[in-house]
Amino acid sequence: MLLIPCPHCGPRAEIEFSYGGEAHIARPEEPDELTDQEWSDYVFMRRNPKGVVLERWVHAHGCRRWFNAARDTVTYEILAIYPMGQNPPELPEPRYL
């Protein structure tokens, strides 16, 4: 059970949140100008790292606001929480014992 530090409500159990998938995917401004491959890349292709992932969460059963998180998908450690629309902060190099 992840304890996710909501920037507005503090650390809450993961069952209060909904997952928003990969962060920092910008919707193409001119979809009609993209090839089918480029559009499919936007809709379907995703990073799926064994390591640090940048992802979105929404505190669905709390304040209902969105935020970004940097989390290690092996250790599940949450390395950073940062606001929507911002870039991630400097992150430490992952070290696995």
Binding site: M1, E14, K50, V53, E55, T73, V74
Partner: peptide, 9 residues
């Protein structure tokens, strides 16, 4: 949510 920890919540 994605994870390779092989545990689950």
């Amino acid at each position: 949510y994605i994870g390779y920890g092989q545990r689950g919540s």
